[in-house]
């Protein structure tokens, strides 16, 4: 279990998911699963966000948008690919318009399994992302000193 002093804010983008993972991500924010207890707030602005949660695979039209969102986020940042579609394209991998998982366009730090990913799995993924975020944060600090 990681412990991160800051309040990491979260940006959710729906790649080309079927909504199954999306609504589970939202379910994580609501009372039963309550991801906000880690100090997380769902924000709509990439400039405010530390964690990028992406559901669904990359297609022709959203590749640039995902790249843009990622570039707009300030460092340090982590990317969590939620669900099998975000990992590899999943059941849609053979469709003509799917390029594949999120890692085709941006680096991914944590992969969350499932179709649709269960809220418990998403929470686990985010917690894992927090420890990676902390690592990145300390490295950045050290680099600044050096």
């Amino acid at each position: 279990m990681s412990y991160f002093k800051k309040s990491p804010w979260l940006l959710h983008y729906d790649g080309s998911s079927c909504n199954g993972c999306d609504i589970e991500v939202l379910a994580c924010l609501t009372p039963l699963y309550d991801i906000e207890r880690f100090g997380i707030i769902n924000t709509g602005n990439p400039k405010h966000a530390d964690i990028l949660l992406i559901t669904g695979g990359v297609n022709e039209q959203n590749a640039d948008i995902i790249k843009n969102l990622y570039d707009q986020m300030p460092d340090p940042k982590v990317v969590v690919a939620v669900g099998i579609c975000a990992t590899s394209g999943g059941v849609f991998a053979e469709c003509y318009n799917i390029l594949g998982g999120i890692d085709k366009v941006i680096p991914v730090d944590v992969y969350v399994m499932g179709c649709a990913a269960r809220p418990e799995a998403i929470i686990d993924g985010v917690v894992k992302a927090l420890s990676i975020l902390e690592e990145k944060y300390t490295t950045m600090k050290q680099e600044k000193v050096a």
């Binding site: 297609n59 022709e60 039209q61 003509y96 318009n97 390029l99």
Partner: peptide
């Protein structure tokens, strides 16, 4: 209307 990888798939 759809921006696709293939024309007329």
């Amino acid at each position: 209307f759809y921006k696709m990888a293939a024309a007329h798939p």
